[in-house]
C-alpha cells in the first residue's frame, strides 16, 4: 500500500494510478473541497421524510451487533459535526443524533 499526497485543491485533478485500478468513488458535485470544508455531514436532502432507520442506514437484515456498530460509527461522526461553526451542518448533525437515539431506543431499549 502506498500513499499519494492529495491536497483538497488538487484532489479533482491530474492523478492517474500507476497500474490499472478500479474506478475510484466519484467525486461529489461541488468538489471535494466543498464537501470536506463544509463537512457535508448528513445524507443528501431526502425527497420524502426518512425514518430514523433509513437515516442511519439500518436494514432489517442487520444483526444487533451490526446495528450497534453502525450507531457508534454514526454517533462519532455526527457528534463531531454537532460542534461545526456551520449552522447547516449543525442542524443536520442534530437530526442525525436524534435518529441515532431513536434507533437505539427501538432496538436496545431506553436507558
Amino acid at each position: 500500500m502506498f500513499k499519494i499526497l492529495k491536497s483538497l485543491s488538487k484532489s479533482l485533478t491530474g492523478h492517474k494510478p500507476a497500474t490499472e485500478v478500479k474506478k475510484p468513488a466519484e467525486a461529489p458535485k461541488g468538489g471535494v473541497l466543498n464537501q470536506v470544508a463544509k463537512g457535508n455531514a448528513a445524507p443528501a436532502a431526502p425527497a420524502k421524510v426518512k425514518t430514523p432507520e433509513e437515516l442511519c442506514e439500518i436494514t432489517p437484515k442487520m444483526s444487533k451487533d451490526e446495528i450497534r456498530a453502525q450507531l457508534k460509527l454514526l454517533y462519532r461522526r455526527f457528534n463531531r459535526s454537532a460542534s461545526s461553526l456551520d449552522a447547516k451542518v449543525r442542524g443536520e448533525a442534530e437530526t442525525m443524533l436524534n435518529a441515532i437515539v431513536d434507533v437505539r431506543e427501538k432496538h436496545f431499549g431506553e436507558i
Partner: peptide
C-alpha cells in the same frame, strides 16, 4: 493527518 490517495496494490483500489 493529511489527505492522501491511498492505493492498495492487493485490491487495486484507490481512495481519497
Amino acid at each position: 493527518g493529511t489527505l492522501a490517495m491511498v492505493y492498495n496494490a492487493k485490491t487495486k483500489e484507490e481512495k481519497l
